[in-house]
Nucleic acid binder design. Structure first.
Length: 378
RNA sequence: GGACGGGUGGCCGAGUGGCUAAUGGCAGCAGACUGUAAAUCUGCCGCCCCUUGCGGGCUACGGAGGUUCGAAUCCUCCCCCGUCCA
């Protein structure tokens, strides 16, 4: 069970610092969770993640692991932690995001979602109950309910119907989850429901109020960063978070850019995850304390400096922009490894800075400095 | 000296009378990426002009002539490269 403990609160914003206790360790919040969809964070070893970056919790994906290698296989291999040799905490997404990202390959019905596998075209049905079962087989510390993550934009009418379905699914998932807990004895896994409602404040609030009745150990805000203008994303958190229990962790799913992390925290978010630091690393977009750095730009061709002179990561301690640019242009895999290490380190450093600022009562000041950072380095 | 083959935009390489400023690939330049179908995708990529639209002008397929309404594509000569034979 994930027990949340608030350690400090910001007087001026909704930010707070906390501790999330799980069966696989305690996590300091606010926390950024690297995404390891297929039981791996692309480009990094578990040793990199644990020893160098001190990652305490990772994401993995139910849909992807269900298709390959299969949750039963993972269960037989001793569960996801042992299978991927990651003794720390794991949060599994339910596959709700794939309802959005694989929209051409799925059909939504009240009972659940029918997916056509992107791997071989096989059809599979995901239900609120089955996704709980799969995640219980995986053994993740935090499980997510199956939800519908609608694209943007969508009509109020559709958003409402979709949100209501997501609420029904959450109820079904919880009923099934609690039934299994009662039958199987003590459980170590938590289940978080997900607030939807597209970009409509009334729907967000309505959804949150209904989900709170489930008395979950944590609550997620989903359906963000699906193509909407950035300000809307923040507005939707503002429209949702006040209706979530303050004593439970709040998880904003799938966000955000490095410069946005503190903004979400200021709006009461305790947990975030995003593919950007890892994916953008591979695609040449590096995050620095002085703004973004596009490594392929010709101005870095003979630049002897590290990506970020203020960064203490292995990459920045040892390699120049010129070398990284060369690796990138040459398509060398080491580039992805080094870049991912850096970007993830940057994200984790930001979260540590945020937490420290909150603990010291200086979060508003920190927020101000973050907002003053230019978009691009130099 | 002779016989073949070949010289195309930064490179490789299509194209063998008009739809060709010229397919592709690479390189180059820029952009996108947000609970990962992504080490992916998109745009630009001869020069100049009009803020403009499938717009206009110039230069260009080794060189120089020629045939033709029209040539990178056909003809003539020349130059250069490769292979082979003397």
């Amino acid at each position: 069970m994930a027990r949340f403990e608030v350690v400090a609160e910001c007087g001026a914003t909704r930010a707070r610092a906390g501790l999330l206790h799980t069966a696989h360790g305690t996590i300091e919040t606010p926390v950024f969770m690297p995404v390891g969809t297929q039981a791996t964070v692309k480009g990094l070893t578990q040793r990199d993640l644990a020893e160098e970056l001190d990652v305490r919790i990772l994401l993995a994906n139910t849909y992807h692991l269900f298709l390959r290698p299969g949750h039963d296989l993972i269960r037989r291999m001793g569960g996801l932690h042992r299978f991927m040799s990651w003794p720390r905490a794991i949060l599994t997404d339910s596959g709700g995001y794939q309802v959005f990202s694989l929209s051409d390959l799925r059909k939504i019905e009240d009972a659940g979602v029918t997916f056509q596998s992107h791997l071989d075209g096989d059809r599979h049905v995901f239900t609120p109950e089955s996704t709980v079962d799969v995640q219980m087989a995986l053994g993740s510390d935090v499980m997510m309910v199956l939800d519908e993550c609608p694209e943007y934009p969508v009509s109020h009418e559709y958003a409402r119907a979709s949100m209501e379905r997501t609420v029904r699914w959450a109820r079904s998932a919880f009923a099934h989850y609690r039934g299994r807990l009662a039958k199987d004895g003590t459980g170590t896994q938590s289940l978080f429901p997900i607030v939807q409602g597209s970009m409509f404040a009334d729907l967000r609030r309505g959804c949150a109020e209904q989900l709170v009745e489930l008395d979950a150990e944590g609550y997620a805000i989903g359906g963000l960063s699906v193509g909407e203008p950035r300000p809307l994303s923040f507005e939707m958190v503002e429209a949702t978070e006040p209706f979530l229990p303050r004593e439970r962790p709040h998880y904003a799913m799938g966000v955000g850019m490095a410069e946005e992390l503190a903004e979400y925290v200021a709006r009461g978010v305790d947990m975030m995850d995003c593919v950007l630091p890892s994916r953008n690393a591979r695609n040449g977009y590096l995050f620095t304390s002085q703004g973004r750095l596009i490594i392929k730009h010709t101005r870095y061709k003979e630049d002897p400096r590290p990506i970020d002179e203020n960064c203490g990561c292995y990459t920045c301690r040892n390699y120049s922009r010129a070398y990284l640019r060369h690796l990138y242009q040459a398509g060398e895999m080491l580039y992805a490894v080094l870049a991912t290490r850096h970007n993830l380190r940057r994200y984790l450093d930001i979260m540590r800075e945020i937490r420290q600022a909150i603990l010291l009562g200086q979060f508003p000041k920190y927020l101000k400095t973050v907002r003053a950072v230019p978009v691009e380095v130099e």
